[in-house]
């Protein structure tokens, strides 16, 4: 019912790489789900339905991995045989740690009222710019087969991504007290 490809990129007939055509990814995802989704097999036998759940879950996992830039980057490294789960202290440059501390401090110092929104936007922009910059470097490192460098950049991306989530959390908590 669905041929499982060698990797997630091939599953969606996309070239393996960080830059991705998200429109194509989404269209292909919908097409494939239309073939395997459990709703297509509601009246089928138990075994067939179970298979549908498995295939549909697999497609969802593949889709979500490629859709998120961070997870996509990690997956590209995994395809190169690099374990991104383990992080050693030595993987993280002191500059990176300083940058993180600085960003986190500015977040912590924000006032608990609506005047913080502008500064939050500013921080958000900063994080987004740095993310874009690191992503560019990651693409280059990967293209040049500098896998060690790519791995370090990936961990930096992880940090920045986490920081963005914290900005969102802060936004949510501010919204719950502020007027708008």
């Amino acid at each position: 019912m669905l041929a499982i490809a060698d990797n997630f990129f091939a599953q969606f007939a996309l070239p393996a790489g960080f830059e991705i055509d998200s429109g194509k990814l989404n269209a292909r995802y919908r097409e494939l789900q239309a073939q395997v989704h459990p709703d297509r097999f509601a009246a089928a036998g138990e075994a067939r339905r179970l298979q549908a759940i498995q295939l549909s879950s697999y497609l969802n996992e593949a889709y979500e991995t490629l859709r998120s830039p961070l997870r996509r980057a990690g997956y590209l490294l995994r395809l190169q045989g690099i374990d991104v789960e383990q992080v050693a202290q030595s993987d993280l440059a002191p500059e990176l740690l300083f940058e993180q501390m600085e960003l986190r401090e500015s977040l912590a110092e924000l006032p608990e009222n609506e005047s913080a929104f502008d500064q939050l936007d500013e921080l958000n922009r900063k994080a987004a710019n740095r993310l874009a910059e690191r992503q560019g470097q990651f693409v280059q490192a990967l293209a040049g087969n500098q896998l060690e460098e790519a791995r370090k950049l990936f961990h930096e991306l992880q940090f920045l991504h986490k920081f963005q989530m914290e900005i969102h959390k802060k936004e949510e908590s501010l919204e719950s007290v502020a007027d708008f």
Partner: peptide, 18 residues
């Protein structure tokens, strides 16, 4: 509408919910 599809009265090709 979804019940009609799941019970087999209506073609599954009509739509899909994700």
């Amino acid at each position: 509408i979804q019940a009609e599809v799941l019970i087999g009265n209506r073609s599954t090709g009509d739509f899909l919910l994700l």
